[in-house]
């Protein structure tokens, strides 16, 4: 299954221009002394982004055929795990994330998958949180998990 996407480089340049413009609005609405440098930097950002967008438009960068990729799945899992860490601690979101990463990188036999998940996620968490006492986000206030 493949679909065609319209000029991803142009879209990226426009997206960056949009972000720069949005931040510029915030900078111009903020206190002038604290926002002096941000205003200058964001003006350069917007100007450069416009130039890049025009260049990409003129160049007519080729369209890219998108095929099915597991990458968005990994990206979403990484983001979900990062968001969950604040609420359910480090260990619980790490286990499925490591299992999924291993699976996507073709470690699919059940025993190595389970052992590696336990060792990489659980082992590193135990090493840092309990042995080296580098405190990672916890589920319980006591910090045990």
């Amino acid at each position: 299954m493949s679909t065609s996407l319209i000029r991803p480089r142009l879209l990226l340049a426009l997206a960056l221009l949009g972000v720069g413009a949005g931040l510029s609005v915030a900078a111009w609405n903020g206190p002038s002394d604290a926002m002096l440098v941000p205003r200058v930097v964001l003006s350069i950002w917007c100007l450069v982004a416009v130039l890049i967008a025009v260049t990409e438009l003129v160049k007519g960068a080729p369209t890219v055929a998108l095929s099915f990729s597991p990458l968005p799945l990994l990206m979403m899992a990484v983001l979900a795990a990062a968001l969950a860490m604040k609420h359910i601690g480090f260990l619980l979101p790490s286990l499925p994330l490591v299992a999924l990463t291993l699976w996507l990188f073709r470690v699919r036999r059940p025993l190595p998958l389970m052992l590696a998940t336990t060792l990489i996620a659980g082992g590193l968490w135990f090493l840092f949180h309990h042995v080296l006492l580098i405190r990672l986000p916890s589920l319980l206030t006591s910090g045990v998990v």
Binding site: V78, A81, A82, M85, F90, S94, L97, V98, T101, L102, L104, F105, R106, V107, A116, T117, I120, A121, L124, F128, I134, L136
Partner: peptide, 14 residues
């Protein structure tokens, strides 16, 4: 490679 990549993801978070 899978083990290395999973390890890198964990070290990034730690």
């Amino acid at each position: 490679r899978g083990y290395v990549m999973a390890g890198i993801v964990m070290f990034c978070f730690i």
